[in-house]
Amino acid sequence: MMTADERGEIEELLPWHAAGTLDRREAQRVEAALAEDAELARRYQLVREELVHTTHLNETLGAPSVRALEALFAKIDAEPQRRPGTAPGIAMRIGEFFASLSPRALAWSACAAALAILLQAAVIGSILIKEKAPGSYETASVPTSPGTEGTDVLMRFQPQATVSDINRFLETNKLSIARGPSAGGIYRVHVSGAKLSKDEATRVLNTLQQNRIVGFVAITH
């Protein structure tokens, strides 16, 4: 059963669902809602009607005459001669550079780049080992590993969750983000200052999991 907010969100997406421009995940969400809500399905029919007639209306507008094309090229002819240095944007230039390389040249370049990275890693590694040698010191104020006090969870939010949704959720549940996001949009979220028992942690986990903006949550060990 959908909440009124969820229903409202789905209803707003109906035009894009009809036009086929939602991503697969959102489209599945809309499909599921339409299957369980007859009134929403009726409103979807209205959206489909609108789409058909908007297309019809636009298709009857015709096309521009050849005058527009002639005017365009007359204006282009009147433009100052393009300087040879005028080139596409940086992203396009990089793309064109790689596209111009033969597969063999590209493979050798990749090997050379990988070798350079390995050498760099070796140099950094040796510096770190030297620094960790007996007699060296570490600052006492900055921990080098995550704190072990309290209880943290790993959490990923739903892609459609807004910043204000997340802020509200953190405030309501008295949570704070300890670290992140890491790869895949995972946050380390601090749930309690005390080390919770397994049962308590599971209870907290179940509560958090039920929130619509939470996509994934797991206890850290």
Binding site: P15, W16, A19, G20, T21, L51, T54, T55, N58
Partner: peptide
């Protein structure tokens, strides 16, 4: 907005 969504098939 109606044209962009329905006719030009533009995403949100």
């Amino acid at each position: 907005i109606v044209d962009l969504v329905y006719y030009h098939e533009k995403s949100v």
